[in-house]
C-alpha cells in the first residue's frame, strides 16, 4: 500500500521562508475590489492554503489504476533534506528534439547510475529534466518533467526503489550551453543526475 498515499511537499518550509500573510492578501483583494466598480464575476479568492496531500473534494483518489505517486507523505525534496554527493558524477542522458523517448545509445548511462544506486543503498537521486530553447517555456517545463520521469521509470524497472528517485524539471530555463544553434540545443536536451547523501 505504500504507493497509494505516497506523497508530500514542503508547504511549511516554504510558507515560513516566504513569511506569507494570507489574511493581508485576502483583505487587500477585498479592498481593491471595492475601490473600482467590479463586474459581478471576479470575487475575492479564498486564502491560499496549500494542501499536503492532494485530495479530491469527495476524498477520492486522483490516481488512475496502476499509477503511483512519486513520493511518500512526509518526504522532503532531497535537495532540501540532504547534501549533494559531488563525487558521484554521471554523464547526462541526451534526447532528440521534442521527445522523451530514451535513445538506445543513452541507456548505458542510466544503467551505470542504477548500478551505483544498487551498490550504495544510502544514496538517493534527483533526475533533472531539461530542454532546448525552442517551443514554449511552459510546454518545455512539462517535457523536461517527462524526460526526467522516463529516466526515473527506467531506474525503477532496473530494480531501484522509486522513493529513492525524485524528478525536477527546469524546462528550457537552465541551459548547459546558452548558445542559439543546433550544437547548443543538442547539448541542452538532457536529463542530469544529481546524487544526494
Amino acid at each position: 500500500m505504500r504507493m497509494s498515499f505516497a506523497y508530500s511537499l514542503v508547504v511549511l518550509a516554504c510558507i515560513a521562508a516566504l513569511g506569507s500573510g494570507c489574511n493581508t492578501a485576502f483583505g487587500r483583494w477585498l479592498g481593491l475590489s471595492s475601490k473600482k466598480p467590479v463586474p459581478a464575476a471576479p470575487t475575492a479568492p479564498p486564502t491560499l492554503t496549500p494542501e499536503i496531500v492532494p485530495m479530491a473534494p469527495d476524498g477520492g483518489s486522483l490516481l488512475e489504476p496502476g499509477e503511483e505517486m512519486i513520493a511518500e507523505i512526509g518526504t522532503e525534496p532531497f535537495d532540501k533534506s540532504r547534501t549533494p554527493d559531488t563525487e558521484a558524477a554521471f554523464a547526462p542522458v541526451q534526447f532528440a528534439y521534442d521527445s522523451f523517448v530514451i535513445p538506445p545509445p543513452e541507456i548505458s548511462k542510466i544503467e551505470q547510475v542504477g548500478q551505483f544506486l544498487l551498490e550504495n543503498a544510502s544514496r538517493v537521486l534527483v533526475v533533472e529534466g531539461n530542454c532546448d530553447e525552442r517551443g514554449s517555456n511552459e510546454y518545455n517545463l512539462s517535457l523536461g518533467e517527462q524526460r526526467a520521469g522516463a529516466v526515473r521509470k527506467y531506474l525503477i524497472d532496473l530494480g531501484i526503489d522509486g522513493l529513492r528517485v525524485q524528478t525536477k524539471s527546469f524546462g528550457e530555463e537552465k541551459p548547459a550551453d546558452t548558445g542559439h544553434n543546433e550544437a547548443a540545443w543538442a547539448k541542452n536536451r538532457r536529463a542530469e543526475f544529481v546524487v544526494y547523501k
Partner: peptide, 15 residues
Amino acid sequence: GPRELLAGYLGLNTG
C-alpha cells in the same frame, strides 16, 4: 506585498 505558495508538490507545479 506577500507571496503565497499555492502548489509545492514533489515534481512539477506550473501553468
